[in-house]
Design a protein around this nucleic acid. Sequence first.
DNA 1: TATATGCGCAACTATTTGGTTTCTCAAAAT
DNA 2: ATTTTGAGAAACCAAATAGTTGCGCATATA
Lengths: 106, 106
Amino acid sequence: MRRDVFQAIADPTRRAIIALIALQAMTPNALAEHFDTTRQAVSKHLRILTECELIKPEQQGREIYYTLEIEKMKEIDKWLEQFRKIWESRFNQLDNLLSKLKNKKS
Amino acid sequence: MRRDVFQAIADPTRRAIIALIALQAMTPNALAEHFDTTRQAVSKHLRILTECELIKPEQQGREIYYTLEIEKMKEIDKWLEQFRKIWESRFNQLDNLLSKLKNKKS
DNA sequence: TATATGCGCAACTATTTGGTTTCTCAAAAT
DNA sequence: ATTTTGAGAAACCAAATAGTTGCGCATATA
């Protein structure tokens, strides 16, 4: 069973869960209220997110609060790095072009 | 059929294809040589990537060169933005803490 | 003109996925 | 002590996915 960050964020519900938990730790029931599904479905998503260590369960009495492991999110950022280099260099090229046009005019 | 950028990058082969194409436009056959699958399998991935507009086909005789639509990659970056804010603020908190410790010493 | 090549498309298969329902267990509330 | 509540686990199902093989259609090459 593949289980990595990219696979985890592929599902829109899971992305929404991550966004909610980023603001504050939440229980499965509290999360489920935000979606049009059952708690069990949310629970399954939480299991997947936990397995790839994007979130962490914290037992508190009979409730379980899930918190975001923000460090793990950086893995996505790290992968994007190689492309960021490209779009930044393209921006610079455009920038250079604009300067040249400007110089021509003046 | 769900078809968005996040779903597209969920597959490791597709991520590899994107990385290869980012360096230079490539044909399906050229790409397939890099993987342990058939051209048809790669072709299917290319279709998915094309559908969500991450890549663009450019016919050249009987060959089709696929180029990366780098702009689309920014969508992922945009989504990460909300979390970047969080990890940057946490970094600042750590930064502040370190300054305080430093001040205490001196 | 005949053949080879590059490629997308369709049909089929096995596996994975997202969801549901049902069950059990432990912690709170009555 | 009994009932309610929060939550994970298991069994099941429909849909989606990743891959395969076989096909047809162009564009090159002989």
